[in-house]
Amino acid sequence: MVSVRISIIKKISCCLALSGMLLASASSALAADNFWQAIQQKGVLRCGAAPAAPYVMRDPKTQQYSGYFAELCRDFGQNVLKVKVQFVDASWDTLVAGLQSDKWDMAMALNQTPERALAISFSAPAQDYQISFLVNKQNPKVAGLGTKLSDYDKEGITFAVMSGTSQDKAISAAIKKGKIMRMPGNDESRLAIMARRADVLVDASDTNHLFALANPDWAKEIMPVPALAKQGVSFGLPRSVSEADMEVLNIYLNQRRATGEIDQLVNQASLQANATK
């Protein structure tokens, strides 16, 4: 009789444990499917912010955030979710960890990489990061050339790039005929193109874009085809966010990108960054 009672108790305990697990799973799924609703109930959207122009910038005097990702986060929170937006200071080393530890709801301006995708989810890209070329329009050696990588990979064409960077690695693998001039820093590589000791400046597209806007009289930015090291630049979110909730943000970003509004924000942020410098 005792053994029968023990057996019954064990069965009841197992059932209760299983019920608890199912309830916990259902609760977790409900929370995942109501990510934006939970933020609306709290009344604030927290955006993890690691400064890097033109994506995210912080005024050292006022501590106010700007930059095109900051503007997107502010607009999405205020006009879509109808909540306040709070920018939380972060660094590039802590953006992913902050999502995982619930220090912020969205991390701004993260390049999409497989390694990061193992830990977090990505929105649709707001912009694409890639390596671009910058040339002097007055240089006859590159005047009239198109956008194909093969147009520039010729004997007599010199590429200036900062040594040891991902740009250096990418251009070294792609160029077969041209000469690569490796410089110790950004300033040196820019001086090389300005003095025409080099014909093509190889750098991240956002950095070259800033430089081109600051020197419109002679500088021209080119996106080579095929692309070099192209990645989406997106918002990072917790992995628990459901597809339905992610779609809300993706629709917002895709619409603003399709209308050219994000390009306008990029240009405004770039002009602001140059003015600050």
Rank of each mutant, 00 (worst) to 15 (best):
K11N: 05
K11H: 06
C14K: 10
C14H: 10
S19M: 08
L22V: 12
L23I: 13
A24K: 08
S25D: 08
S25L: 08
S27V: 10
L30R: 14
A32S: 15
D33K: 11
W36M: 03
A49N: 02
A50C: 10
A52C: 09
D59A: 05
D59N: 15
K61D: 14
T62C: 05
T62K: 07
Q63M: 09
G67N: 04
F69Q: 00
C73Y: 00
C73G: 03
F76L: 00
V80D: 06
L81C: 05
F87P: 08
F87V: 01
D89S: 15
D89W: 05
S91L: 06
V96A: 03
V96T: 06
G98I: 02
Q100F: 01
S101L: 13
D105I: 09
M108I: 00
A109M: 01
S121G: 15
S121L: 09
Q127Y: 08
G144E: 11
G146W: 13
K148E: 15
S150Y: 06
D153E: 08
E155G: 11
G156T: 04
I171F: 13
I171D: 10
K177I: 05
M181N: 12
R182G: 07
P184W: 02
P184D: 06
P184F: 07
L191H: 11
I193K: 07
A195G: 13
A195S: 15
R197Q: 12
R197N: 11
V200D: 07
N208V: 02
H209E: 08
H209M: 12
F211G: 05
A212T: 09
W218R: 04
A219C: 08
A219M: 03
K220F: 11
E221L: 14
I222S: 07
M223H: 14
V225Y: 13
A227H: 10
A227L: 07
Q231D: 01
G232M: 01
F235D: 00
P238M: 01
S240D: 05
E243K: 14
A244N: 12
Y252I: 01
R257V: 04
E261P: 02
I262W: 00
Q264W: 02
L265H: 05
L271W: 06
L271N: 07
A273T: 00
A275G: 05
